[in-house]
Design a protein around this nucleic acid. Structure first.
Lengths: 185, 185
DNA sequence: TCTCACTGACTGAAAATTCAGTCAAGAGAT
DNA sequence: ATCTCTTGACTGAATTTTCAGTCAGTGAGA
């Protein structure tokens, strides 16, 4: 699965060749078919693996030295996706691929929609901790904007047209902008 | 080129078959190779074509019945990308493919970067007309956020996880949020 | 001896790319 | 006007390449 994540990060979902995956994992192609039904099966399981891994490492923020203040926690959670660590890059790339492929492949949409919804809800919850007086609808809208923005920035970063530090700055400002609005209402 | 844009919008960059393109254009596959070096050449030229065309039709807004007020003009320009018209859908889809592929294909990045820069600058200019007192740097940052957000929303719309009307609402609110901030500074 | 994880060599189909021409139209020359 | 000659656009039919997927085994350990 790790090899698959690496290959997808390097070539994209549609660029994944079973032979290349086998080479990356240091095994024969036949063994891949021993463990997976077919190429689609490889993809399905890999994307599951990646989203599990993403959840896991998103939750790792749960264990900082002492409870962070909510604003910082929100910021950290969002910025987690904008880091130049191999695992993060892999995950972001894979997510971007998943989204891009869902445009043409309805089969992928369900997983994508579910994962996105969860992410938006988590973000809305964090926003609610920072700005407890805000109505749920406003929190949800802010969360949708922030997560969609993050996806846009992430894509620009990964395609090399936006430096990482700049992406992070823009995101933090967006958080500030949204919070100011929430607090003012 | 138009046929290629349509096929890409329908199948994606990786899904483009030379034979299908030929059929779409109503010519033989051999003719495609008469005009283009190879499949990669088709892709390169088509993506150039798409980004040129995008620039052109964004500028067409210059001719409304009477000059719109700047705020409306900004909103209309941004909302232009979020419409359920075949041409818009085609362009947004192809554009999304271009971005997604640039992650794996450095050859595509130059065009992408140039087109993105132009778009951000145009948006910054429109923002400047709405909020003339704001410093250029703030305008640029807001423009980057709004355009990146639009890309994120567009992707969600195209992959069917966000209804169009909701995407439009979120975008308009984002414009409001950014403008409030600019005016308050 | 049996099973499990594994492999090298292969197949078939789909897709890309090339080849060997045809055809229509324009440019001189007669 | 008609007759070559040339050229660019175009095609049908191969040929070549690329891949997913299969198969007949092998060796290690229970």
């Amino acid at each position: 699965m790790e090899a698959a994540a690496r290959v997808i990060a390097r070539r994209g979902v549609r660029g994944l060749r079973v032979e290349e995956l086998a080479a990356e994992a240091g095994v024969s192609t036949a063994l891949i078919y021993y463990h997976f039904k077919d190429r689609a099966g490889i993809l399905r399981r890999t994307l599951e693996f990646i989203s599990d891994r993403a959840e896991r490492y998103t939750s790792e923020r749960e264990t900082p030295a002492r409870p962070l203040d909510p604003r910082r926690e929100l910021e950290q959670t969002l910025l987690l996706e904008l880091q130049d660590e191999p695992v993060v890059r892999e995950n972001s790339t894979a997510w971007g691929e998943l989204r891009a492929n869902a445009v043409f492949d309805p089969e992928l949409r369900e997983d994508l929609a579910k994962a996105t919804l969860i992410w938006v809800q988590e973000t809305a919850e964090l926003l609610g901790q920072v700005s407890p007086m805000s109505p749920a609808a406003s929190l949800a809208a802010s969360a949708e904007r922030l997560t969609a923005l993050l996806e846009g920035l992430s894509m620009r970063w990964l395609s090399g047209i936006l430096p990482l530090t700049h992406a992070r700055t823009l995101l933090l400002e967006a958080v500030a902008v949204e919070l100011e609005r929430l607090d003012r209402k």
